[in-house]
């Protein structure tokens, strides 16, 4: 048997003994970005298909969360920066090779658009709401007339944002856990599912809840499939990938991953939502909260565990 023992004289703070450069900010940012992408996707989709009347929560009420989620996410991202005085540098260049760069630009576009979207529903949501200036009324009328165009822009940006939350991580070749192409779709599906959960939780319309529950069930099943696929991919990979799989198969993330994410965050809400559709009395808040909790835990685990995986020592 051959043993390899590596010792390194390096002890740089936050780099050794294992990388710890990204803290809670990044998972929170990825979670809120995914959630916002999910809600916007459904809102835009049902607007494009002309179902605004049947899906009022999806198209209107739930979208009020989006600007808040995006802004809090951006604040989290800002807090994570270590050279904050130079934050504006993000917006002096477009670097297509850098996911961080086009993520920043996507957010720059989608945040104001989502605010415009919400603004067009202000009058319906707040009785007696009046815009202070006349030109805002004119603008509103024009936007409402072109609502479908706005919806198209948002649906494209929502998909980019949802995938981006995964690609931000999967672009890092140096972290074997993140460097899997399935992470983009997985984060997108998970983001859509958290978005659907919020809608299910908020809606009082029975028909709408039924549709969104069906969609959510499908999304959770896809997510379970992608997660299994990801772990199998690691096991079939090179040495560093196998070591990555071990983190979830006996290693230090085993319990948090399987118990908190897979069972509590996916399987349990899947069962509850299915039972609810079958007519059992289940408070909708329960599966919704579990899905949101699972989505957040999932992002924390992936960001944290990814920094444990490396090539050398």
């Amino acid at each position: 048997m051959t043993e390899e023992l590596l010792t390194s004289g390096r002890m740089n703070p936050n780099i050794d003994p294992y990388l710890n450069i990204w803290h809670w900010h990044i998972p929170v940012y990825l979670f809120l970005g995914g959630l916002a992408a999910g809600i916007l996707f459904f809102a835009a989709y049902y607007t494009i298909t002309g179902k605004e009347k049947q899906m009022p929560t999806t198209v209107k009420w739930a979208t009020f969360i989006v600007p808040a989620a995006l802004i809090i996410g951006l604040i989290a991202l800002f807090l994570d920066l270590k050279h904050q005085m130079y934050f504006w540098r993000l917006y002096t260049t477009v670097r297509l090779e850098s996911p961080m760069s086009w993520g920043a630009w996507t957010l720059m576009l989608i945040t104001p658009l989502s605010i415009i979207w919400v603004a067009t529903y202000m009058k319906e949501v707040v009785p007696g709401w009046q815009w202070k200036w006349k030109f805002l009324d004119t603008a509103e009328t024009w936007i409402i007339k072109n609502k479908k165009g706005l919806a198209w822009a948002l649906i494209v940006l929502a998909v980019i944002l949802g995938i981006y939350t995964g690609i931000l991580l999967s672009a890092f070749n140096a972290r074997p856990l993140w460097n899997v192409s399935i992470l983009g779709p997985l984060f997108l599906v998970s983001g859509l599912s958290t978005g659907a959960a919020v809608i299910i939780w908020m809606t009082k319309n029975h028909h709408e809840r039924k549709i969104m529950s069906r969609i959510d069930i499908l999304l959770i099943i896809i997510e379970l499939f992608l997660v299994t696929h990801m772990i199998m991919g690691f096991l079939a990979g090179s040495e560093v990938k196998i070591a990555t799989a071990q983190l979830f198969l006996g290693g230090q993330f085993t319990v948090s991953f399987w118990v908190f994410f897979v069972i509590l965050g996916l399987v349990f809400p899947l069962v509850l939502e299915t039972l609810e559709l079958r007519g059992f009395k289940i408070p909708v808040a329960v599966p919704a909260i579990l899905i949101l909790f699972g989505g957040l835990v999932f992002r924390f685990i992936i960001v944290e565990a990814g920094q444990f995986t490396r090539y050398l020592y």
Partner: peptide, 24 residues
């Protein structure tokens, strides 16, 4: 020009970079 986002630190397979106490 550095905003201290840490993307480059995450991307180096040799962990050759670090965050300077001054932020960059």
């Amino acid at each position: 020009e550095c905003i201290g986002c840490g993307a480059c630190i995450q991307s180096c397979p040799y962990d050759a970079r670090f965050s300077h106490p001054d932020g960059y």
